[in-house]
């Protein structure tokens, strides 16, 4: 990535974090909602949670959302809706934009001529 693109992306990430994510976090916090416990509960009998999905079926090997940008936004919405966190779904469009900006697949070096062989 070039530095101008890096700077633009950082701006986008910063804006999202402070203008979308944190206000929503504050709102949920004010409503007394928490995604996880941050402290032990002395009254609990156990901290083990029963898993909903206990085995991997063939269809559970397929993860929608990681195959292309086209399915990413919808996959986030589906995931949060099914978890009962519909408040988060409004973050999905911006997250898609961020994913596109942050997308990075490293190039392998192409400096060497194909006519120079590895000898050693």
């Amino acid at each position: 990535m070039n530095s101008t693109r890096d700077d633009d992306t950082l701006l986008e990430v910063t804006r999202f974090f402070f203008e979308e994510l944190m206000p929503l976090a504050k709102k949920l916090q004010d409503e007394g909602k928490a995604f996880f416990s941050v402290k032990p509960n002395p009254n609990a009998q156990t901290y083990y949670k029963k898993r909903e999905k206990t085995i991997m079926h063939p269809e559970s090997f397929e993860v929608v959302g990681c195959d292309s940008f086209d399915s990413f936004e919808e996959a986030l919405i589906d995931m949060w809706t099914s978890q009962g966190y519909s408040e988060l779904t409004k973050l999905a469009p911006t997250l898609l934009k961020l994913a596109k900006s942050l997308y990075f697949v490293e190039e392998q070096s192409e400096d060497i001529s194909p006519f120079i062989y590895v000898m050693f």
Binding site: I112, I116, Y117, V118, M119, F120
Partner: peptide, 13 residues
């Protein structure tokens, strides 16, 4: 002729 060694450097043989 030039070749590459194990460190990716061009060496002449």
């Amino acid at each position: 002729r030039y070749w590459l060694n194990e460190r990716g450097e061009q060496v002449c043989y």
